[in-house]
Amino acid sequence: MYRYLLRRMGFLLLTILLTSIIIFAITQWLPGDVCRIILGREAGKKALEACRRDLGLEASVPVQFLRWLGDFLSGDWGQSYSTRTEIFPLVMQRLINSLRLAALTLLIAVPLAVGLGVAAGLNAGRLLDNLISISTLSVVGLPEFVTGILLIQIFAFELRRRGLPSLPANSSIRPEAGFMEALPMLILPAMTATLVLLAYIARITRAGVVEEMKQAYVRTADLKGLPRRVVVLKHVLRNALLPTITVIAISFGWLISGLVVIENVFNYPGLGRLLVFAIDRRDLPLMQAVALVTVLGFSLANLAADSLYALLNPRIRYTRG
């Protein structure tokens, strides 16, 4: 198993390296002169040259890349072009906010989604399954800004209009707010993100359970005369839920994409809104930093899921290599 994990880790490092090249390449693509963007149209030739030298743009592209990566790894993330502040603390603060939202979402979404998926899978073909399947299918592809706005209309505006206790429609907390302060503001965004994950995870969990129910060893277990409960828990779910770990890891990607939109719907100060802000201002280093941090987080989450999967799956645990 250690070799398996080592190999996964090796792949991961390679992937992150390649991804960072891609991020670097994309942002290098930026048409026009970076220094012109920074200094504005009226800048003189001298100032432009000085700026280029400062930014190391004279060097060849691979050298620029290595320098950039080295700076990034050593924590020197440079200054934002638009806010003229250090990027590192800014990104970290927003990262924490985004992680809070993500964690709350996963806390709600994963148990709920797995529960629904299992319920549907065990009752495949029956009314309950059809209800769950059709409703998750309907929600699965709705853009987050649609669900988010609908939730705002219902839980914020509609409730308030009727004089009932309502949730805040706007989550623009102070970026440095503590968790308890932020919590009420987190509820609606987390619900929105939950809907996205819920449908996705529930559908795949259901498919896994249905697939598992067809396995020969489930028949063996049944015909051993084990109580139905034991067959379901020990034989069906144990195997069906293993792949769900991987699914949840993959759905992190969805969650990240979703959060970008959701943070903008609710004006929540997370990484996603920072990214859109950076793109609006064409703030190159900020874009790169946000993208790299996101990729790192996504990759680590995947590695964690892989390790957990390997740990729980004897077919990998007891195999060398």
């Binding site: 396995q215 020969a216 060893y217 028949r219 063996t220 277990a221 049944d222 015909l223 051993k224 005369g225 084990l226 109580p227 139905r228 020990k234 034989h235 144990r238 195997n239 293993l242 729980l312 799956n313 004897p314 077919r315």
Partner: peptide, 25 residues
């Protein structure tokens, strides 16, 4: 029937690889 399966009547299936649960000893 569940009380009869495995107690009075047992079943020996064909494909041993898939008839055993891969995640249990």
């Amino acid at each position: 029937m569940r009380k009869i399966w495995g107690r009075e009547m047992a079943y020996l299936p064909q494909n041993s690889q898939s008839a055993l649960n891969p995640t249990l000893r």
